[in-house]
């Protein structure tokens, strides 16, 4: 009895959620359309019905938000300004933010954006203040290359052609992030692919990927063999190590290595390759 009501309530809740989503979609597309804008602007200032001004304000807000989103989707690197609330901040709290948007094919959506926030000094020098880049990506080498700071050693800063290049820096960081996302996607695909195949001696029993940098993976095969994979930043296979149980045949080890190396640019097909290996 209770459970029937509960399921009904859950259904209604889901329906409300779906309708709410649809309403917000419809209202966004309605308010974003040119026709609405023209219709609202066609009123004379004398005989304006009440509320038109507010509608026009919402409309311009929405259209600028849509424009910003379009810029983010197409450019991937966008900049914005914020004010540092710190009363002692340099240059009146001028902060330049850089937002990095990336698409993940595995998740079929954009990942939550990454941010770089720079303090901007009076002379235009930027200094990295806060960022949301995970620690497995080392920012220092990229910073050193493109964003020399005043208090770093003089020789590096005074080199000809070595000036501050925010665009190159953001591109460098984004490249690393794209690599990280690609590797995570590939590992996720590998994890999902092993769930299907279940027979055969060399079939994958477990996929262990604890590395937050998504470069190291460990596969455990049915017969106890351990396979360690090291990925390049592009997501391709870099190195493979096979450790078989004792008293195993060295030729077997070579065969496993060969089968894995053959799918080095598509690591998500390793499980299938191992399953199809001749016994």
């Amino acid at each position: 009895m209770n459970s029937a009501i509960d399921t009904e309530i859950a259904q209604v809740r889901a329906q409300i959620e779906a309708l709410r989503h649809r309403k917000s979609l419809l209202s966004t597309s309605l308010i974003g359309s040119r026709r609405t804008k023209l219709a609202l602007q066609s009123y004379d200032s004398a005989q304006k019905p009440p509320g038109i001004d507010r509608a026009l304000a919402t409309l311009s807000e929405t259209s600028s938000a849509i424009a910003a989103n379009n810029a983010r989707i197409t450019a991937g690197i966008t900049a914005f300004r914020v004010k540092d609330p710190d009363p002692n901040a340099v240059n009146n709290g001028k902060i330049l933010g850089v937002r990095l948007d990336l698409y993940s094919t595995g998740q079929n959506s954009f990942v939550p954006p990454y941010y770089l926030l720079f303090r901007q000094f009076e002379d235009g020098v930027l200094k990295l203040h806060q960022h949301t880049i995970p620690a497995c990506i080392s920012l220092r080498p990229i910073l050193r290359k493109h964003m020399p700071t005043k208090d770093e050693d003089e020789s590096a800063a005074s080199l000809p052609g070595h000036s501050q290049d925010l665009h190159a820096f953001a591109k460098g960081v984004r490249k690393e992030l794209v690599g990280l996302t690609t590797r995570s996607d590939k590992i996720e695909a590998l994890k999902q692919s092993y769930a299907f195949g279940a027979h055969g001696r060399y079939c994958v029993k477990d996929v262990k990927a604890y590395d937050p940098g998504a470069s190291n993976i460990e596969l455990e095969l049915r017969d106890g063999t351990l396979v360690k994979l090291l990925l390049r930043s592009s997501g391709d296979l870099d190195k493979v190590t096979v450790r078989m149980p004792q008293n195993a045949d060295i030729d077997e080890k070579r065969r496993i290595e060969k089968a894995i190396l053959e799918c080095s640019d598509r690591i998500e097909s390793i499980c299938r390759a191992l399953k199809d290996m001749k016994q």
Partner: peptide
């Protein structure tokens, strides 16, 4: 290792997946 490490204080909202909108 998380993305929250580099943003603290008021800036922590930039790591908050709920308040940063998807493109």
């Amino acid at each position: 290792a998380t993305r929250e490490t580099g943003v603290n204080g008021a800036w922590a909202q930039y790591a908050d997946a709920n308040s940063t909108n998807n493109a």
